[in-house]
Design a protein around this nucleic acid. Structure first.
Lengths: 163, 163
DNA sequence: GTCAGTGCAAACTTTTTGCAACTAC
DNA sequence: GTAGTTGCAAAAAGTTTGCACTGAC
């Protein structure tokens, strides 16, 4: 059994436990969604997930069910939600290293990076009467590519007004 | 002149400079929007801003103009955008101490807090080919109030299923 | 058999866009 | 005078909701 399958098995068990504990039904749709999500490496939005499940041999599920199920998955701590841009972005979070997000304000590219010191600093911050479950750090700025592009534009004096 | 008026003068100048530099017009709407925003202490969304400007003796502006102008203000580094919940939240950011956000996953309450060590750690993180302009740290969890409420519920065994 | 869960479509909310009128320059 | 801005209304995009049907228990 590959690493990926092992992971899928584990999260399936966690989800089953969660569903049992909360008196929810164990429908094939829910497991199909979980399985698909844990096949995706990075971020995804509902629409992407919908297309993925439509295209594959997998179960086809409605958007409504996707929205419903993803709430359960978030509660079960198997998925987290991000909100850069206009669409909600999700990502699986079981057994994924903590990482932070760099977002280019120009091209919108999102890059993940890890930094233990940073992670440590955040997790050990004393909070007044607040019980931390998770966090998101979004760093905005210009990615190398966009910055170089801008410099070139400035040189050529093409740039006069922004959009 | 009060502190608040002094601040408003300053940001007005910054905005004027920004508009000049980018060849944008200095319309009364834009200044009225800036002025209203710098009267608001915490976060706000477009709808709140719209109501505020409608109710006051101030200029009434359309939502379209609010959306347009707020983009300019973000570029001028006078406003930043947050995306907790479903609506985009904004806040003025000139001369406001850096702060982080605690968000209660149950009641949705957002609290700001400051922490110099954390700030330092984030700002001095080495990023590969990325030019940081600003960042947002969102810490999710349960606020004291909700946590106490939950504990009480558990004790009384009222809680069986989540919503 | 029952009721939670599903699919579908309609409704709703937030944001964007097209266009005529306006006004800063 | 001209082109950037505005307001309005329509459209788009994302998400939620109501309801009849289905299937997990």
């Amino acid at each position: 059994m590959g690493e990926s399958d092992k992971l899928k098995e584990t999260v399936k068990q966690i989800f089953t436990e969660y569903l049992n504990q909360h008196g929810h039904r164990k429908t094939p749709e829910r497991y199909a969604i979980l399985d698909t999500i844990y096949s995706i490496e990075g971020h995804f939005d509902i629409d992407t997930l919908y297309s993925l499940m439509e295209g594959q041999e997998k179960f086809r599920v409605s958007r409504a069910t996707l929205y419903n199920t993803i709430v359960l998955l978030m509660n079960a701590r198997l998925v987290i939600k991000h909100q850069f841009g206009n669409t909600s972005q999700y990502e699986r979070c079981y057994n994924r290293g903590t990482h932070h997000h760099q977002i280019c304000t120009q091209c919108g590219k999102v890059t993940e990076f890890q930094n233990e010191d940073l992670q440590h600093a955040i997790e050990h911050t004393r909070l007044r009467s607040f019980n931390l479950t998770h966090y998101s750090l979004y760093i905005y700025g210009l990615c190398g590519k966009c910055e170089r592009a801008n410099k070139k534009m400035q040189k050529n004096n093409i740039h006069k007004k922004e959009k």
